Amino acid sequence: MMSLHALFGRHSADLKASRWDNGRFVTDCLICGREMIKHPAGTWQIATRR
């Protein structure tokens, strides 16, 4: 079941724990713990599984 948090996308990146990984920044959401990524000129978003 998907939470309202995930449905509305109000994730909050943990900026203190962000790290550089293969040309992008990586951290976790402070609210739900899901992995988030950000490319240098982009915005934080939930990482998708490939």
Rank of each mutant, 00 (worst) to 15 (best):
Q45H: 10
L30H: 10
A17W: 11
L30S: 12
I46P: 10
S3T: 06
H5W: 03
H5I: 00
I31P: 06
A6H: 11
R34C: 14
W20C: 06
K16I: 01
R50F: 00
D14C: 13
M2E: 07
L30Q: 14
E35C: 12
A13W: 07
A41K: 12
T27Q: 11
T27W: 12
Q45L: 07
L7T: 04
A47S: 15
R34Q: 10
A41P: 13
K16D: 15
L15C: 13
S12K: 13
T43M: 11
S12M: 07
H5E: 02
T27L: 09
D28W: 10
R24E: 03
T27G: 09
N22R: 03
T27H: 09
N22C: 05
N22S: 11
A47D: 13
H5P: 00
A41M: 12
M2T: 08
A17N: 15
M2G: 03
A6K: 05
P40I: 06
K38M: 15
R19P: 08
T48G: 00
F25W: 15
L15K: 14
H11N: 06
G23P: 06
M1G: 04
D21W: 05
G42T: 12
S18W: 10
P40H: 04
W44K: 03
A41H: 15
R24L: 01
G33Q: 11
T27S: 14
G42Y: 10
G42R: 13
G42M: 11
G9E: 04
D28A: 15
K16A: 15
D21M: 04
K38Y: 04
A13T: 08
F8P: 00
V26S: 03
D14V: 05
H11E: 02
G23N: 07
V26M: 07
R24K: 09
A17G: 08
R10Y: 01
H39C: 03
E35H: 13
T27M: 06
V26H: 00
L4H: 03
L15P: 08
L15D: 15
R19Q: 13
R49G: 05
L30K: 14
F25M: 14
A6Y: 12
C29M: 10
R24T: 00
D14I: 07
W20A: 04
I37F: 03
T43E: 14
